[in-house]
Amino acid sequence: MTIRFNDETFRDDYTFHNSPEAVRRFPFPFDHDSYMYSVNIEPHRRGQAGSVFQHRFDVDEHYIAEMRDREITLKDDPLRCQSLPHMELAGWDFLELVMTCKAEDYPDLFSLTRDGDRWHWINRPLGIDQRFTFLDATTLPCGPMEYITRQTQGDHALLDQREGNLWMDAGMITSQADWSLDFDIGMNFFEWHAPVPKAAEMGVFQRALKFLLNLQQGAPVRRLNWTMTVNPRLDTSPENYHKWGPEKRTLTPETVGAKQYLRVELQTLWRLPRSNAVAFPIRCYLCALEDIVTVPKWGRRLHRVLRDLPEELATYKGFSVNRPMIVDYLSKFDDGAPTSPGIFPDP
């Protein structure tokens, strides 16, 4: 399978677009007609061919453009990528995980040759050919986590495990749903989730943490999370909120279908071998409402979910102000027919 990479942007003129195949494989996050917080963690098993779950680290038509956008963000604000000193070993673990997975899953795009600690990595889409010494950071142009996450779609956090908790001690965060790595780095699981309304009192985080502390090597898990974004913008950081915030108020009933995006995070969690840390890639997928509704099941369901969502959650997810317009648009695609179980389109 050869991927045709899009030439597109995630800022300014926003030329981002999904091909019809990309829409079909979009990880629609709702398996019911209503949404409530839940731990919803499942094994990160290989999914069906063509789906975003087929490979351990999905590479799609947006790969090159996303990496270009990350480069722009990092040039503007290098603090989006940080690693506390004790996390370098975890960075190497993660580099190894990504390189071995990608070389195995996409042999036509990536290759890794290892001779002891002498490694040779080729990334054809980005035109990279790198020889380096494993565990010797001076042989890479930057630290191991930064090196590999400049070549891997999605945000990535590395979590240190100690004192019965997980600590956000390293990360590459350039397409976040409104949280700041520079602010949150060094926090434990409960602290970095502190701004999430209600979930703490529901015990969701205690259960999730207990599960993750016992995460095993070779048995990664995943969950889907979601939010809403106006325009296909990756950098919805709090750092730049005052720059992208005004765009949120530019929706009109005429443009809402094209400019309002459902933003889905495919979160995976991996136990790393040498460091015992947990890698936490947060892969972002964007899909315009007008593309979502081309799948009738999704159009119906998204309408019901967003219409019935508690106001507090709509506020937390930052689309409260646009909700009436969004729901009104989607209502035209909901004939009230029942929807089938699961997240995938009807055949």
Binding site: H86, M87, Q161, N214, S275, N276
Partner: peptide, 9 residues
């Protein structure tokens, strides 16, 4: 499985 890891800090 490691329940007795070094604190690398």
């Amino acid at each position: 499985v490691n329940l007795f890891s070094l604190d690398l800090r």
